[in-house]
Amino acid sequence: MKESLSRNVANEPGAEAGLSWRRLVPTQISDLISQFAAAGALIIICIALSIASPVFLTLYNLFNIVSQTAVTAIIALGMTFVIITAGIDLSVGSVAALAGVLGVKMMVDLGLSWPLAVLGGTLVGGLAGLANGLLITRARLAPFIATLGMMSVARGLVNIITGATAVFGVPDSFRLLGQGMIDGVPIPLITLIVLAVAAHLLLSRTRLGRYTYAIGSNEEAARLAGIRVSAYLVAVYVLQGLLAGFGGMVAMSRVASGQPNFGDGLELDVIAAAVIGGCSLFGGQGTILGTLIGAFLMAVIRNGAVLLNIDTFTQSVIIGVIIWLAVIWDQFRRRRFAESTR
């Protein structure tokens, strides 16, 4: 019936009458600017750094930036989904450590091959995400509380399991994941690109992605539209857990050992990447591309600070100011939109 109806209307002359595309332009430009405010900042800083430091624009340095930020960026892909639902996941750093260490132990203690161990570690992260999702939807905990608890639980577990000492003895081949190259391109970069494209498609082209936005924009409307909100929320936190677990494995591969203290404070970098990239903590807004830009903006600033001999404390101040500016910009844009409805 819908089909025939659509066709009927399509056959009518002037099916697009009343839709003037000209009036769209201001909105589109405003959207573009907001989307790429961070991108603009990134480009300007890159240009400035390549002038200020001869080292910056070398392939070696650029790959170095990518390798260092790949883990943050991979986990931030999941955070984009979480924040779009108006949620938050504070446990990603601890979960990455737990998953990474358990993955390493699968190789060291069980003798698993490294690809299987990576899969295992990723699934451990997924389990933690499942627990988060169930705590939020079944026990009705606020995401902040549920994941705050998980942050503590996962960190405690990894220290219990390892006795708070690093796990050594991984096979050499495991280094490939975090340190390897294919035709001179770092494998973490390739991995990140593949995952980012997949995440982008998931977010923009699938039901899961669409419902992620709908739930974050208006959970009750989504429920009344027949969307099983709880199921999709669980899926989003599982996805975040899987990415945190995988990110943990990449991180362990980079140091070729299991580090129980890895990822302390990583959640803040991950959230910052998403927020700088345009995700709204109130939900309903955010893109994968934006989050990637946010992650790289922070990485480039840190890298530039090292090249220009700016100390880490000053770097920290700069990153904080950038977070403020990104969110102030976002709110300014929102206010303008709200007014234009009148």
Binding site: V9, E12, A15, G18, W21, R22
Partner: peptide, 20 residues
């Protein structure tokens, strides 16, 4: 597009945010 046409929903674009 067809829903907008059928119900005479006046919007400059089907992609416009409903808020507006």
């Amino acid at each position: 597009l067809h829903a907008c046409q059928r119900l005479n929903i006046r919007t400059p674009s089907v992609r416009r945010k409903v808020r507006l």
